[in-house]
Amino acid sequence: MHMADALVTPAVAGAMYACSAVAAAYSIRQVRLEEDAKKVPVMGVMGAFVFAAQMINFTIPGTGSSGHLCGGMMLSAVLGPYAGFLTLIGVLLVQCLLFADGGLLALGCNIWNMAFYGCMIGALLIWKPMMKKGITKGRIAAASILGCVLTLQLGAFSVVLETTASHITELPFAAFAAVMQPIHLLIGLVEGLITAAVLIFVHEARPELLFCSRKEDRTAGRFSFGTTLKFLGAAALVTGGLLSLAASSNPDGLEWSVEKIAGTAEPGGGAQNAVQEKIALLPDYAFRGSESAFGTVVSGIAGVLAVAGLCAGICYFFKFLQKHRWAEVKENGADRKGSS
């Protein structure tokens, strides 16, 4: 599931970094670390816990193979969506630096694919609504399995999108997705079962540790419609952005690069380039020959700025809407202004 650096282009990597950074900045405000100093050590140690728990081999009954935890859903069920998200960022950073799982460049993608979906979608759209009427074993199991399956499907689909948008592989989009989605359905099911087992254990031993176990957490769910809208919006935006990137920027006209390495031109690239120049902000290869790199870098940067700007703009728009609709949120908005 970890994207490697080699599978993304700088534009896609930058765009995903921008999206993840927006989500992280939003989370930092929501977690309010200044007010609750205890969250920092809890997040730090729980990050190490997730890392260690990922190493455990869970035998899948009836098969010889074993399953593993990814931990997003479990973390957010204990820490809540925002603290869980920040914690998982720390885990992913350690993984990419230490064990070369994923890469520094693809970190933005990995944060989005695993931490964002696992924590935000898993906690806010699944865990919180399902635990509204109180936590029971059955609900924990259902939420864990549903959450893991759904968030892994979203993550796997994002991997396909990001890879396709990067034009790294000639693997057709449909074929790639047809491989990735079913595999991750299975992985999600197993992870869901493990997560459910762990959370039920925690529920029995120390029920107060679970997110939404206290009343105020649950009643805070009043805003969940706005939050839902925001997260669905952000997810849709990123998906759309990636799809359009995939559609509009053919990062290297096949003709040009084949010509470069072999000295013979292959037909077929010309028409595409013409279309592409109309759609993309800057044509990918504005100049031929040695100047081309410049064009690529510029269009890469422009792409990053455009997507980041768009993403931030829409988030601010949602925040603006929220501020004017709910009186309670108004206070929060003022708080945030004060703290920032």
């Binding site: 035998t59 009954p61 204990v78 493990i194 087992a197 762990v198 254990f201 031993a205």
Partner: peptide, 18 residues
């Protein structure tokens, strides 16, 4: 046993969590 069998999934990782 090669890994942790299903019955102990919750308690093993859960203990670690606590």
């Amino acid at each position: 046993q090669k890994g942790i069998r299903m019955k102990a999934w919750g308690s093993l990782a859960g203990q670690l969590l606590l």
